[in-house]
């Protein structure tokens, strides 16, 4: 048992962790933020993607103690109040959501990409989301969604 402090979705929180717990476990079970999914538990699928200090990580591959004093953003932390993040809105509008299990990770992956590169080409988008599997295989629409989000963000800036 160990107590760690971290900021999750903008709020300062304290949590007791077991030494063998993963960041994914404390997000889902400790903070009850179940939007972050477990698809493989071994860094292959990206369903557990979150932003850790602004960088995209697989929460199943990070031990909970490594998140000490960090800032974590999960899918629940995107958007402002009732307003969706433009990436979330674009996923809805283009039909990039099927079963939805990959969607939170996919959206965060797109977020990380657009923070670094606000005007990605199709190829860059494909590369950007290459760590996230969509087994419903709606990749075409997902790429469209990211393009649309980039465009809308550029227009409002």
């Amino acid at each position: 048992m160990k107590t760690i402090n971290l900021k999750i979705n903008g709020r300062k929180r304290q949590i007791e962790i077991e030494e063998n717990e993963r960041l994914l476990d404390i997000i889902r079970e400790g903070f009850h933020l179940t939007g972050t999914k477990e698809g493989c538990g071994e860094g292959e699928c990206g369903a557990c993607s979150v932003l850790l200090n602004g960088k995209l990580v697989n929460a199943c591959m990070i031990m909970a103690f490594q998140a000490e004093d960090s800032e974590v953003i999960t899918i629940e932390g995107l958007g402002e109040n009732e307003k969706l993040d433009p990436i979330q809105q674009a996923f809805i509008d283009t039909g990039a959501v099927q079963c939805g299990f990959c969607t939170p990770g996919m959206v965060l992956s797109a977020k990380a990409l657009l923070m670094k590169n606000p005007t990605p080409t199709k190829q860059e988008i494909r590369r950007g989301i290459s760590g996230n599997l969509c087994r419903c295989t709606g990749y075409e629409k997902i790429v469209e969604a990211v393009e649309l989000a980039a465009k809308r963000i550029a227009e409002t800036d």
């Binding site: 179940t34 939007g35 899918i75 969706l84 509008d93």
Partner: peptide, 23 residues
Amino acid sequence: ENVLRVDGHTKVTGGAKYPADLA
């Protein structure tokens, strides 16, 4: 027509509950 999914919103926000999310 392009029809928006009724469950699109809950799925992009992480609100949709899959069985492992229930307690």
